[in-house]
Amino acid sequence: MFRYTVEEVLRRGTLLFYFIIASIIILILALGIGHPVNDPDAITLFGSPIPRVSEQGFNMIEFLLIQLHSLSIFWIIILGMFGVAGLVPSMLEKGMVDLFLSKPLNRAELLMARAFGAVTGIALNLLYFFVGVWLVFGLKAGVWHWGFLSSMLYVIYAFICFSSVITILGLITRSASISIMLSFIYTIISWGLELREHGLYRLWDNVVYQRFLDTLYYLTPQLNAMLDNSTRVIGKLPMMMNVPDFTFMPFLYSFFPTCFLFGLSIWYFSRQDF
């Protein structure tokens, strides 16, 4: 089931789109980035030399990598959501679920193979983009930025946490479109909860309400915080000086709700009649 799901994910139009865009970006970078022989402290971008670090301390390489990283995670979350939100509902379709459940597999195995097959499909796409960009920067500009490469692992982890939400939504709604819609709402809620102190707190000056928002924040995977932190692994630009440093906490806090949601999904799936 795992292997089949990976194959199914990679064939999804939305992820093929991501793959094509990633390929174009890698190709453009490969053609555009150079390394001037006479200046080891610069890179060339389509023939124009650019200092790696400006006199004001602006790291051009990290700026470029952070932009590429942000672009990539935005699209992988959006396209990944469209690509994988339908996987659980499609497994539960009448005529399909009967076949799967009649096989000598327990339901937990089946569901987890589906969920992690989806994550693996996404991870393979991310691997392609991040390793591609990393190799281009390394081979063409002599910049082997390990922070950029390792940031991919944090994004994959964030997507695993996100997939626990997608899985339970798919299981309960049994509908790809509703599941996509609710997953999208979750990403907005996650963003809203992350910024609750500057936004949602101000809507109602009530301690109970504020503690409720806090509880909700810690009870759900902190998608937004994890993605933000994955960017900080690459580096901090001068305009990000007020942004806190990288922390493992959102990843740690998200681990428990993720396990809880997967556990809840297994429990729910094992009790259902089809």
């Binding site: 089931m1 292997r3 089949y4 194959e7 199914e8 064939r11 379709e93 009448k94 005529g95 399909m96 009967d98 076949l99 799967f100 009649s102 096989k103 000598p104 597999l105």
Partner: peptide, 26 residues
């Protein structure tokens, strides 16, 4: 088991469908 109104992954060929279900059967 052959259920009524069964459905198969549309992207698989007949051969791969059987291989896939064979794998599920271990």
């Amino acid at each position: 088991y052959l259920p009524e109104n069964h459905r198969y992954p549309a992207f698989l060929s007949a051969e791969n469908t059987l291989i896939f279900f064979g794998r599920l059967n271990g």
